[in-house]
């Protein structure tokens, strides 16, 4: 569904991605892991069109999308939810969500999408007429994910949906992402919470210094010594002791 080949990109003259290749199959949940500053967010931004790809190719649903304007990529059915729970604070929850369906001109479709989002996040329905500036962190994240779902995309990219949230809220968000994927959405998720992400995902990539360092099924990565050592807080000795 999404096929990235040798992608090079960065900000200004600073090169962040040094040739990333990554694949996401339809219906899969793929986790993109890695430490701070390894280029995870940059990769998502390059895919969604917020920054220019310098070289390489990005193919979505059989179409080249590198170099397209972000709103065009959204119209093709690929949506990114950015990090940092950015909603429009001066607008109500419902207005925020409706904006997500800006590209959809069909009222009935928008109404159906809105009901679907309220189905995933019932608390948003209760708060639909409140300004999003008054919401809690978890609710804001729901608004952001919900806004991403409003255009009924075929694939969604989530940038650290669990960042700066209480553990119980993180669990809720992950459960909902699981439900969304089960309903047929393809998901690429960037996470610092490696354990949770690997529990959720089918396949995983580990990004380091702008290139893919390790890739494999979530099962395999979970038991990979390097991954355990670097990201899961386990040690090799620990693992041997378990065996």
């Amino acid at each position: 569904m999404l096929d990235i080949k040798d992608l090079v990109s960065g900000y200004g003259s600073v090169r962040i991605l040094n040739g990333v290749s990554l694949k996401v199959e339809r219906g899969q949940i793929v986790a993109l892991l890695g430490g701070n500053g390894t280029g995870k967010s940059t990769l998502l931004k390059a895919v969604s069109g917020l920054i220019w790809p310098w070289s390489g190719s990005i193919t979505f649903d059989g179409k080249r999308i590198d170099g397209l304007r972000p709103d065009r990529i959204v119209r093709l059915g690929l949506v990114q939810v950015t990090q940092g729970k950015e909603a429009f604070p001066g607008m109500t929850v419902q207005e925020n969500l409706r904006l997500g369906a800006y590209a959809v001109r069909d009222r009935a479709k928008t109404a159906a999408a809105l009901e679907r989002v309220y189905g995933y996040f019932p608390v948003l329905k209760e708060k639909r007429h409140e300004l999003s500036g008054t919401l809690s962190g978890g609710q804001l994240q729901m608004v952001c994910v919900g806004r991403g779902l409003m255009s009924s995309p075929s694939m969604i990219m989530l940038d650290e949906p669990s960042a700066a949230l209480a553990p119980q809220v993180v669990l809720d968000i992950f459960r909902t992402i699981h439900r969304i994927a089960r309903d047929g959405m393809t998901v690429l998720i960037v996470e610092q919470n490696v354990r949770m992400a690997l529990l959720l995902a089918h396949y995983g990539y580990v990004l380091k210094d702008g290139v893919i360092e390790i890739e494999g099924s979530a099962e395999r990565l979970m038991h990979d010594d390097n991954v355990r050592l670097s990201y899961l807080g386990g040690t090799v000795a620990n693992r041997e002791a378990q065996l």
Partner: peptide, 13 residues
Amino acid sequence: HNKDIAYLSGINV
């Protein structure tokens, strides 16, 4: 308010 988020909402900024 935010051009990036507007873009990602499918708005022709």
